[in-house]
Design a protein around this nucleic acid. Structure first.
Lengths: 217, 217
DNA sequence: ATTAGCTGGTGATATTTATCATGCTGCCAA
DNA sequence: TTGGCAGCATGATAAATATCACCAGCTAAT
């Protein structure tokens, strides 16, 4: 646990923090954090897969990012806001670990190494969100689809065949395009021999060319 | 200075940190931070206006955000990376204050309040970048232009007439559209009586309707 | 003074993406 | 058993956006 969590924190401190740790089970589709709720806990993902989304004023969902085990789910806002400005929803059966936020804050106050490690971890997480968003923004439809396929293959499943954990609609909400165009583009990739599709099962046949599409449209 | 900078830090500590503070002057257009440079300093903006940009693999610039005085310029990556993955460029004559990063880190280690305040400030900054990016992403051309006009009017200049600090090209790099369409849309707003334009001078005539366009296209 | 380059501007046209319509499947509840 | 609803899929068409071409004004460098 220590090596996965914090690098410079002694075991004593860790145990002290985690003594009040609670684990929660969430089944697929369950809301873990609701946008607008007060922030009282500090949460990280132990197993499963979740999405961070925000509901816009027109009541449409935008997916901000995905989080995999040992990512913080309380990624942003935790230290800068009273209320969550995003929701977290399980897209696979998941287990979260919940720490009391006040306790975490107290430890950060008293232990500089803990605070620095926390800062490092949260900063890394938000960095990725920002850079990833900029990457997606600069691409057009095909590049964005290629991007998300490679994202799941490389970052989440580390394999060229995997079961898509998200619906076509969710892909659309992540890359900011319509469902129809997501479907069409996946079909096109299939026809062009870049991938094979059986429902949610994806097999990447030509990773190199997919990479090319992701980079240069 | 104290109230603007950190809320819970005693004056002693602040003076200790700022004893090695250096001020630098940058004229409009000057590069303050170069993407790829090692991160050795902790920088905040004392006066002026700057843009954070990243240069994509196709050598095009994307504007990540703008920063105004007393924002940190070392917004992200500082505690999570060895090298800057963005550049900072002055878009007005600006003065930055430079602290030694190791010194800042040392103080964060020894002073929990300082660390927490730092975390709060950086978290707030990255939150804004993320939310703002999601806001822009969900809009289309006209909404994005309306958004940036209101952004400058409300957040930067707090007035309905102001001199645009950025070129049409820079607006395009911020909202992710082409220069031609930025120009066209501004002209359209002018023809529709929403704004007046004299070169870089902007006067917002119908803020309410501009707000409407920003929200609902 | 002359050219080159950059910004602002506009129109015509091509490309990309959204919208609308329709169908098909599987699943769940009445 | 029958709806009804959600996800996946495809085609036709409309709307949004990019691209290309061109012009004017300004400024920096030769």
């Amino acid at each position: 646990m220590q090596s996965l969590f914090f690098a410079h924190v002694t075991k004593d401190v860790l145990e002290d923090i985690c003594v009040h740790k609670i684990e929660r089970q969430h089944s697929k589709g369950e809301t873990i954090i609701q946008q607008g709720d007060p922030i009282k806990e500090f949460i990280y993902l132990k197993s499963g897969l979740v999405k961070l989304i925000r509901t816009t004023s027109e009541n449409k969902d935008q997916i901000i990012s995905f989080s995999k085990p040992f990512d913080f789910v309380s990624v942003f806002s935790v230290f800068s806001s009273e209320y969550y400005n995003y929701s977290v929803i399980a897209i696979d059966d998941s287990i979260t670990c919940i720490l009391d936020l006040e306790e975490v804050k107290r430890h950060a106050l008293n232990n500089g190494h803990f605070a620095m490690d926390l800062m490092y971890r949260m900063s890394t997480a938000t960095d990725h969100i920002i850079i990833d968003n900029m990457e997606i923004r600069k691409k057009q439809l095909k590049g964005r689809i290629a991007h998300i396929l490679l994202y799941f293959a490389r970052n989440i499943y580390k394999a060229n065949n995997f079961e898509l954990p998200v619906s076509r609609r969710e892909i659309a909400e992540y890359i900011g395009m319509t469902v129809e165009n997501v479907i069409r583009t996946l079909s096109e990739f299939r026809k062009d021999g870049l991938i094979k599709i059986y429902g949610k099962e994806i097999l990447i046949l030509n990773e190199k060319f997919l990479e090319e599409v992701s980079e240069h449209g």
